[in-house]
């Protein structure tokens, strides 16, 4: 077994202090140690985006990031979007537009869409497509996903 190290970071606005093996990925840490199963494991190699999370305001594939690199960082996962019983506007838009089918890709898709809109509140449809290139969905065909994101952008603009 690889050596363990202490890790402190902020996860969905709460502090986390934990000891982790230094060769563990962030995805592994969240799903298997912190029991946060919203973030999905699919390809495990950066191709599908199901494991997308936001770290210090930038989205990354958590299957490729080493957990030790979370030290002092601020993390947002799908579990952190909802406020009490209120869905986040991006989540609500996905529901309203029927943009979710099996749902497996959705935690990553919604985190990525939310990040894109935060980066550029007047995102065009073309920019949405480019920004979501790293998120693969095998059900929806993407049209309704884009409609949902467009609705959020429209609300803001």
């Amino acid at each position: 077994m690889s050596v363990k190290t202490k890790l402190n970071f902020t996860l969905n606005s709460r502090p986390v202090n934990i000891e982790v093996p230094v060769d563990m990925t962030v995805l592994n840490l969240f799903r298997d140690f912190l029991d946060l199963k919203g973030t999905k494991y699919a390809c495990g190699e950066g191709e599908c985006g199901a494991c997308t999370i936001e770290v210090d305001g930038k989205t990354i594939n958590s299957c490729l990031m080493m957990a030790v690199d979370l030290q002092d960082r601020d993390v947002l996962t799908i579990e952190g979007l909802q406020k009490g019983n209120m869905l986040h506007p991006m989540q609500q838009a996905f529901v309203d537009h029927g943009a979710v089918q099996c749902g497996f890709c959705m935690p990553g898709m919604i985190i990525q869409a939310n990040y894109l809109v935060k980066q550029n509140p007047s995102l065009t449809r073309e920019e949405m497509k480019r920004g979501l290139e790293g998120n693969i969905c095998r059900c929806t065909g993407y049209t309704k996903v884009l409609d949902a994101v467009a609705a959020v952008v429209g609300l803001k603009g």
Partner: peptide
């Protein structure tokens, strides 16, 4: 850079 991988990979 804009043709490199995906936004998530480019960020890392």
């Amino acid at each position: 850079a804009s043709h490199f991988a995906s936004e998530q990979i480019r960020n890392a």
